[in-house]
Amino acid sequence: MAYDKFTKLTSTAVPLPIENVDTDQIIPARFLKATTRDGFGDNLFRDWRYNGDDTPKTDFVLNNPIYKGKILVGGKNFGSGSSREHAAWAVYDYGFRCVVSSFFADIFKNNCLNIGVLPVQISPEFSNEIFEAIYADANTELEINLEAQTITLLSSGTQESFDINGYKRGNMLNGFDDIDYLQSMKSEIETFTESRPF
């Protein structure tokens, strides 16, 4: 059991409609010096969230108390750049359990899946509808149903299904991770190693 099980999540969401949000923005490199996984949420979006003197930037969404919840809705190509898993840890540690975007960068998406944060990819049209709904009413809720692979904007009833392979879906529903799986096939791996030429 590597992380919390994820089945269904109903929550308000935090909107961040900026495209190409890279992992250097999610967690700047100077905060990667820890040797444990804890506490990265404090520096999530550090340089967008705080001024140089550590005072909050009031126009940034995480500093606006009307937006809260366990879902982060980002712009297209969310999580590009560095492979640092610290970005996914920061998202998780801050309290998000799901990131919604019309397009994810590969490694970030994979890192999220590996630590129990669900990346949900939706159409650009639905993404726009969600942003508009949240800006119209910050109490707007989204419902993510992993079993059914659906995401629903509860205020309008608009629903889309999202992709996730059956293996990863099973992992998230049960709270298993890849190491649990790989450990179970160790002898197969050892036999394979013998066949490697170098």
């Binding site: 994979n110 590996n114 890849d178 450990q183 096939m185």
Partner: peptide, 22 residues
């Protein structure tokens, strides 16, 4: 290719990672 830290752990302990073929 680059991997996350969870995968670093996988490689250390099983010499494998789990990836869909791109």
């Amino acid at each position: 290719f680059g991997i996350g830290t969870s995968e670093v752990e996988m490689v250390l302990t099983t010499q494998c990672i789990m990836q869909p073929k791109p």
